[in-house]
């Protein structure tokens, strides 16, 4: 059994001190691994990453992250990565890491990804250099994702992205902006190698569940989509995908009915 906690789009800033930590106190009891699918910071300021790292200090399980577009906004992704890495968080970009958990080997291949759209409405790698650079960036990220996944010899393989690989998990967003929210090239790369789960964020108004053409489950774990601090997944070797109630402390009963 491997238990995964996943979140995305915390958009942490120096004004967010203390807002996340209280909701993570049970995470280490509930999961063996925490995966963060990008947009860790508000504008990619290393000071924001420092605040987030402090907020995560009680999470006593390995943490693996990819950066999101917000983490690039002030052109300091390396500094943000350094702050995270300094706190023991693994930041992936075109590479992978694996863990032995309860005798099962689980691997995570991570890449930010990028946009370009989905079959029937995609940007072409053609014309102006800016347009070719846009699609070229996605092609490059997808190729890195494929090789990172291929490098994993594991019982379970997870692709950790920021951008979406399928349109289903974007439902709720304006269709016109789908090409800025993800690309089929990411799903194609995943399907070429195979994986057991794809996690992404970025689409705050999207939907939780999708699937690649090859049948790999895709989950949008953006906090505004989940309407909770993180999602929990369990690989237990059964085909039972029905959500199961966890014992929850009484003070949390009814949280679903708080309108946000």
């Amino acid at each position: 059994m491997i238990r995964i906690a996943a979140m995305a789009d915390v958009h942490f800033g120096t004004d967010a001190v203390g807002t996340l930590r209280p909701h993570l106190v049970r995470l280490a009891e509930q999961a063996d691994l925490l995966l963060i699918a990008g947009d860790l910071t508000r504008v990619g300021d290393p000071a924001e990453a420092t605040i987030l790292v402090d907020e995560l200090r009680d999470v006593r399980v390995p943490i693996v992250a990819v950066l999101g577009n917000h983490d690039y906004h002030t052109d300091r992704p390396a500094a943000v990565t350094n702050v995270l890495a300094g706190a023991g968080i693994t930041v992936l970009e075109g590479n992978s890491i694996s863990f032995d958990i309860n005798g099962i080997r689980v691997g995570v291949a991570g890449v930010k990804g990028f946009g370009g759209g989905f079959p029937g409405a995609t940007a072409s790698d053609f014309g102006e250099p800016e347009m070719r650079a846009f699609v070229g960036h996605t092609k490059e990220r997808a190729a890195h994702l494929e090789s990172a996944l291929r490098s994993l010899e594991c019982d379970r393989r997870i692709a950790l992205l920021h951008y979406a690989p399928v349109p289903e998990t974007l439902q709720g967003e304006p269709v016109g902006i789908y090409p800025f929210l993800g690309s089929y090239l990411l799903a194609e790369a995943i399907d070429r190698v195979g994986a057991d789960l794809v996690l992404h964020g970025h689409a705050h108004h999207g939907s939780e569940q999708g699937v690649t053409e090859g049948g790999v489950p895709v989950r949008n774990v953006a906090q505004p989509v989940l309407r909770r601090a993180y999602a929990l997944f369990c690989f237990d070797g059964t085909d039972n995908r029905v959500p199961v109630e966890l014992p929850s402390p009484p003070e949390l009963a009814g949280w679903r009915y708080n309108a946000h």
Binding site: R3, D196, A229, A231, F233, R241, V244, H260
Partner: peptide, 16 residues
């Protein structure tokens, strides 16, 4: 607008 306050989950999704 509303300020996000996302608490811990109560469900686990089981995958094969």
């Amino acid at each position: 607008t509303e300020v996000a306050d996302f608490v811990e989950p109560t469900e686990v999704e089981h995958l094969p």
